[in-house]
Simulated scan of single mutants.
Amino acid sequence: MNFSPKKKASNIVLLIASFVIVSLILWNTNSFFKKFKEEERHKMEIWATAHSELLQAPLDADPGELPIKIFQNNTSTPMILVDKDGATKTHNMPEEKANDKEYIDRAIEKFKKENQPIVIDYLGEELATLYYGNSQVLNKLKYYPLALLLIIFLFGTVIFFFFKTNKASEQNKLWAGMAKETAHQIGTPLSSLLGWNELLKAENINPEITKEIEKDIARLETITERFSKIGSLPTLEKHDIVAETKNAFDYLKHRSSKLISFSFNTQIERATVLLNPSLYQWTIENLVKNGIDAMRGKGNISIEIAKDNNYVHIQVSDSGHGIPRSDYQTIFNPGVTTKKRGWGLGLSLVKRIVEEYHKGKVKVLSSGKSGTIMQVSLQVVA
């Protein structure tokens, strides 16, 4: 991982350079559009001049090849020629609409907005007015800058999500590294505790004391194992979900306040799932502790297990203050917490363990003033 200022500066430079390049393309396209529009107007002025020469020429005179060639070459620009008497003549427009006055009037208004009309005169006398619209090529170029703006937006979005994903990846690596280092640091005093407990046994003290110490040492070993597995794919094996849930429940029950009432109910005796017991117990622990925090240390916690088709559902209920419906999804995001001193990692870990590692589902089944029910669903295997 590298959080150095040089890396951040290079990312910013890359982002700015990318936007400059796209902006230059946009500016160049806009300049090309204006230039092309000027060239098209110049072409129309030439056409108007040629038409003026034809109007001035005697009826029996040869108009020459140049005016005729100018007329023949202009096949892309739609035009409406209105003479001094109000008669209209269309060019490069649908022939069936040539006598449709409403269509012609609408087209003239449209052409006025697109281009300045050209007055054809001779010796100060107005002979006709030429209205013309944009050619098909020019119309396509007109929308090209909009397409580029869309490209800039999409490009910026991709860059944003790239940097966001990159940052999240670095943070995940940091958390994984810290977790593994924590597991490593716990290992040394844990070995000493094992030795001290053996010495206590040799002193013939109350066996219940050393037995409880052994349970806590086993608990520390489990925590160490959990932290050591963060950032790597855990091994899943077939286990009885009912037994594993009961083990986690019993441990939490004996080490929680007497003000908490615990109840465990199951509709099935056994259900085999692919499971990592250590991580699964961590899931149950987080859900139960969240419930206890929501009840402020006093209330009812219950776990119910039921089977539906190919899934077994574990429901953890509490009698706390509940979760707003608007937070049902965001509550699983890292950093989101309703506690004043919470880190917002518990439920995000639950979601990752259940959905990413065990391919299951976790959700807020229901929540209200009477409490919250969280449901974990795992697929049953033969």
Rank of each mutant, 00 (worst) to 15 (best):
P234Y: 01
P67Q: 09
A50V: 03
F262A: 01
T90W: 06
G124V: 08
I186A: 09
L190H: 11
M79K: 03
N74E: 15
L199E: 13
G297T: 07
I12Q: 12
L252W: 05
K35T: 12
P94E: 07
G335W: 06
A382Q: 15
Y132S: 03
T165W: 12
K110R: 15
L252P: 04
K229A: 13
Q56Y: 07
G346R: 08
H358M: 15
I217D: 04
E170F: 09
V381S: 14
S326Y: 00
A147P: 04
I16F: 11
S319W: 03
T188I: 13
A306V: 04
P145V: 01
Q116H: 10
D105Q: 10
P58C: 08
V376R: 00
K97Y: 08
L15A: 13
T224H: 10
F32D: 07
T165S: 14
V376T: 03
I292K: 00
E237G: 07
Q185L: 15
D308A: 12
E125R: 11
E53N: 14
H254M: 01
V316I: 14
V82H: 00
K340F: 11
N166M: 05
L378S: 00
M44V: 06
K113E: 08
V312W: 07
S366I: 05
F161C: 05
V288R: 09
P63C: 10
Y328H: 12
V137E: 13
H42N: 12
E95A: 14
N139V: 00
F153P: 07
N115E: 02
V316L: 11
T338Y: 08
L193F: 05
L54W: 12
D327R: 02
L146D: 14
D327N: 02
Q267C: 04
E214G: 15
K289F: 10
Q185F: 10
T372N: 09
F161H: 08
Q171D: 12
I108Y: 01
A57S: 15
F162K: 03
E102T: 13
E109P: 02
Q379H: 10
I209Y: 04
K258S: 10
E269N: 15
L55A: 05
F36Y: 14
V312D: 09
D100N: 07
R219A: 09
L130W: 06
P145C: 01
L233H: 08
D240V: 03
I353A: 05
P94Q: 06
I353V: 06
